[in-house]
């Protein structure tokens, strides 16, 4: 399931934790923990939250600085491509 999550995140196919939860058939809470696990294990890294780029984003009021963007680390990319 963690590989599946990594693949979905790496391919940019999920828009958030709720979306990831729906695709994996988990609750949002458990999907959040799954993402935490992937970060802790070094497969995902949190990009800096709402930096200056966000100032021009029309949706920035909605996220109010609370959003967090995640990206695959090198280890994450290797895990997705390995069998």
């Amino acid at each position: 399931m963690l590989r599946e999550a990594l693949t979905l995140i790496g391919a940019g196919q999920v828009t958030g934790v709720d979306d990831l939860a729906t695709r994996l058939g988990l609750s949002s809470s458990l999907a959040g923990q799954l993402v935490d696990d992937l970060v802790r294990l070094g497969y995902l890294q949190g990009a800096s939250t709402c930096t200056s780029t966000c100032r021009s984003c029309p949706l920035s009021d909605g996220c109010a600085g609370m959003s967090q963007v995640f990206a695959l680390t090198e280890r994450g990319r290797r895990a997705v491509t390995s069998p």
Binding site: M1, R3, E4, G25, L26, L34, R78
Partner: peptide, 16 residues
């Protein structure tokens, strides 16, 4: 080194 993905992943599947 990536065995953790399947071990921890297995736990999520077990829960489901």
């Amino acid at each position: 080194e990536d065995a953790i993905l399947d071990i921890a992943g297995g736990r999520y599947e077990w829960v489901a």
